[in-house]
Write a protein that binds this DNA or RNA. Structure first.
Length: 267
DNA sequence: ATGGTTGCTTGGCAA
């Protein structure tokens, strides 16, 4: 079995106590983090080593973005791809070998896209759409899904109607606009990815991984969105065994606004 | 319709 988790941590240094809490209770083989928000030299390697994770690859930058793959078993760094050539730390990939099977793990932090869903008024929204187009091109050109591949991360889009608390209320809110959903679906199609979360919990059940910091009472309002995703290539179609979306982590001490998502795969 | 919070860093952005 392979147990892999993804979590937008919103500052890895600040969140180390709850990362330890998560690791001690769930103990994934591989933990993928987004929004680490520190330079590579500032990454808390020692804390992860002490928790039993000695194999770490990181793509960090000062203050913004940043992704990491943290593993109990040896992993090999494959790539840190600069989508849209902006120098942002939004992707890292690594290879994990289990029982003579080479598994590629891609960890993404897709641009949030700002507040205004208009490419002419908002360059951040244009960047987000361009980033998604480039992802589709990349997955097709490099035949990413023709070998055993797992893609995780904060894709900053909730594609399905029940991936948000109100489809109608969010149609003009960045993360759920039709153009973003169309681009993300094009990416899904380009790789023939399997949506692992919806494999376990199909529509029309509501499914969220993020709750805003701005709600007075996030749990009572429960106005969430499914922004975090795990996609697997065809190799894993009959190997998906278990899913956990750890909603309670949103209520932990000094939480991230995202919660950890974990799947188990048989290899 | 608007404002609400958090993190990085100390003045505003970005989310």
């Amino acid at each position: 079995m392979l147990k892999i988790s993804t979590w937008n941590i919103n500052s890895v240094r600040l969140r180390m106590p709850i990362i330890a809490e998560f690791i001690n209770s769930r103990s994934p083989d591989v933990l993928c983090l987004q929004e680490t928000k520190c330079r590579d030299a500032e990454f808390p390697h020692k804390d992860f080593h002490a928790l039993g994770y000695r194999h770490i690859v990181i793509n960090g930058q000062k203050g913004y973005h940043g992704v990491a793959i943290i593993s109990k078993k040896p992993i090999e760094l494959l790539d840190k791809r600069d989508f849209c050539e902006k120098g942002d730390a939004r992707h890292i990939s690594a290879q994990l070998n289990i029982k003579n099977t080479a598994i590629t793990i891609h960890n993404f932090y897709v641009p949030a896209g700002g507040d205004e869903p208009d490419v002419t008024l908002n360059p951040k929204f244009a960047h987000k759409l361009e980033f998604l187009d480039e992802m589709s091109h990349w997955v097709r050109k490099n035949k990413i899904t023709q070998s055993p591949s797992i893609l995780v991360g904060d894709l900053n889009i909730a594609p399905l109607e029940n991936d948000v608390w109100s489809h109608k209320a969010l149609l003009k809110v960045v993360s759920h606009t039709p153009i973003e959903v169309e681009k993300l679906n094009a990416f899904f199609k380009a790789g023939e990815w399997i949506d692992a979360l919806r494999h376990f919990i199909p529509e029309p059940e509501k499914l969220y991984t993020w709750w805003s910091y701005r709600a007075a009472d996030w749990a009572a309002a429960d106005r969430g969105r499914r922004l975090d995703h795990i996609l697997v290539s065809d190799y894993f179609a009959n190997r998906l065994k278990k899913l956990e979306i750890l909603k309670e982590a949103r209520g932990w001490e000094r939480p991230s606004d995202h919660v950890p998502v974990t799947i188990e795969l048989s290899i």
